[in-house]
Nucleic acid binder design. Structure first.
Ligand SMILES: [Mn+2]
Ligand SMILES: [Mn+2]
Ligand SMILES: [Mn+2]
Ligand SMILES: [Mn+2]
Lengths: 218, 218
DNA sequence: TTATTTTGTTAGAATAATCTAACATTGTAG
DNA sequence: CTACAATGTTAGATTATTCTAACAAAATAA
């Protein structure tokens, strides 16, 4: 049995893992706003449960079992967010905090029903992929808008670090998933981009913003 | 701040309260499947928080504040059940356990939205009244079918002790809220009732069942 | 390479929620 | 009005989760 607290640690490990699947105690501590000694002791406990590989002073890694359990929590989170947006009429900036709680409901039936009512969606409202019932995540590759070049025409496909404030900012700028953006020029000084999209012929996006927008070509 | 655990105690107190608003430690202990000493210590804690009146060896009573907080938890529970049945297609026998968990979500927006999507329902899928946002409960008075007489024609309006098993039994017998039942005779030996309803001209309902069906006349 | 900063661990304590064992009070049946 | 049963409380312990203070290792800078 995995407790609510343990689910939150697993999810954070999953979301923070780099290419090598590694996470530092310090990052995890910051992500969860829980002090490092507490994180260390929880990692020992999760290692006991065969959910995490833990060795002193080494980076943390989820085991296969841990990855699967983590993905299932992420699945519950993302399905919930999608349901809140598509079926209940919430804005994409409102759903994360609610999903943070609903994700801990223990009822396969409940999430299966959500999945079905949504028509088995592949992506959540922020463009993140939804793991399947076996915890398998279909990998989707996006580029950061900040890595694109002048003249490129791209489509906003996902957002990262989805704070409510950032999403409200995008709402004000009328940027949402699917928005087609043309990069008119890039300011070398601060790497801000002058872009055009929708009915905005010349809008400027700061580098901070461009780093958080994931795009696809074509 | 009221913890998930405290919410469960408050809800149980609310649901168990008799006419005088009193609950015994023992009943509460059984309801929650938590040992009496644990209940006693929790009652002291809730008394500290001014949610419960507690005196040694006296029956437990919710304070006004406690009643309101309890009613708000009951509201979340019943709204959730109604949503699961009306908007998600669950059966009335499937929703209690899920609502037991969802009721602890802390988000006024979430439950306000549910309320709105349901059109501000007054009753849950088991016929129980839904407290308003101020924790006020509109009192509805039903009679037990077991207190009715031969010849009476009544409408099933609510069910009590809504275990999944009991509700599945009602599903098999094709009894639901709104079913009109005519009492043909009452067996004095075991107080079972021979009734007719729907397309069942003569069905027998045991006293146990009749005690759990709440009905209205007219 | 030595000093300093950053990261991570250990030790010890706190809070919340729970339990069992033992004791006390209340209620009930003769 | 006792005796027994039922109910309720106290004491002490346990588990889960968290913290601060102190120490240790690793990484970085000088
Ligand atoms: Mn989210
Ligand atoms: Mn969470
Ligand atoms: Mn219920
Ligand atoms: Mn509950």
């Amino acid at each position: 049995m995995i407790s609510l607290t343990e689910e939150n640690y697993l999810k954070a490990l999953f979301n923070l893992a780099n290419n090598a699947g590694e996470v530092n105690v310090n990052e995890l501590s910051k992500q969860l706003a829980i002090k490092m000694p507490t994180v260390t002791s929880m990692m020992k406990k999760l290692a006991e449960k065969k959910l995490v590989y833990y060795e002193s002073y080494k980076p943390l890694r989820l085991t296969e079992k841990g990855k699967k359990e983590a993905a299932l929590v992420v699945r519950k989170h993302r399905l919930t967010e999608m349901y809140l947006v598509d079926k209940m009429g919430f804005g994409w900036e409102e759903v994360h905090d609610i999903a943070e709680q609903v994700e801990h409901v223990r009822s396969a039936q409940f999430f299966d029903k959500i999945d079905e009512l949504l028509g088995f969606p592949k992506l959540d409202p922020h463009g993140a992929p939804i793991p399947d019932k076996n915890g398998k995540l279909a990998w989707v590759s996006y580029d950061k808008l900040s890595n694109c070049h002048a003249g490129d025409i791209v489509k906003v496909s996902a957002v990262i670090h989805t704070s409510s404030e950032f999403l409200k900012f995008l709402n004000n700028r009328e940027i949402s998933l699917g928005t087609k953006i043309k990069i008119k020029s890039i300011e070398p000084f601060d790497r801000s981009m002058v872009v055009s999209y929708g009915n905005r012929p010349a809008d400027t996006l700061s580098h901070i913003v461009c780093e958080r927008l994931l795009v696809t070509f074509g």
